[in-house]
Amino acid sequence: MDWQAIRLSLWLASLTTALLLVLGLPLAYWLAFSRRRWKFLVEAVVAMPLVLPPTVLGFYLLLAMGPRSPFGRGWETLFGRTLPFSFEGLLIASVLYSLPFMIQPLAAAFAAVDRGLIEASWCLGVSRLRTFFRVIAPLSWAGILTGIVLAFAHTLGEFGVVLMVGGNLPGRTRTVSVAIYDQVQAMDYGPAARTAALLLGVSFLVLTFTYALRRHQRKPWTLI
């Protein structure tokens, strides 16, 4: 088995999930409670990675990170290196690619919190931010857990975007799914089978754990 690729995938998935959580809490709050008329536009953009082929997303990300785009040039002047085919580039791509898997469970859980509880908190003099951490977040734990699990698992299994943006550099951008692909291409079925079985086991365990924790929630048949 390619332990280096496994370690890299786990590290990438952990960092992606952490970044998505930081980004996702305010964004999901806004999506759950904003009354802006153009909210549906943001919802559509957030959901895009669900339907877009990974190669298409990867292609545009590659263009955006390239030296001809202002973002790519800006990154290079700031950090002194280019984004494509680097771990940082892969991280940015993963965050965008897994965005809906974090945002949607969070936003659904926040929106399901009884409005009366939120207003009761405000009337008791507690600010909107503290109301979020004292009422909304604790009552949304199942949705937050689901978002973390789905974002982590989805990043762990991503393939198309990695190939487009990250390439296949061992120790830098070669993830576990790319490693399996390489092994199969090289007719190296033994390690491919072991790595695939590992991913299958991990996915099954993580989802079982999540469902088990949520078994008393009202809708056991769906994660989102």
Binding site: D114, G116, L117, E119, A120, S121, W122, C123, G125, V126, S127, V135, P138, L139
Partner: peptide, 20 residues
């Protein structure tokens, strides 16, 4: 003024006690 700045006591119809 937001509710936080009005120093009032509000008893909603459904009571809205924090269940957690």
């Amino acid at each position: 003024l937001p509710p936080q700045a009005r120093n009032l006591g509000f008893l909603p119809q459904a009571y809205s006690l924090f269940p957690h």
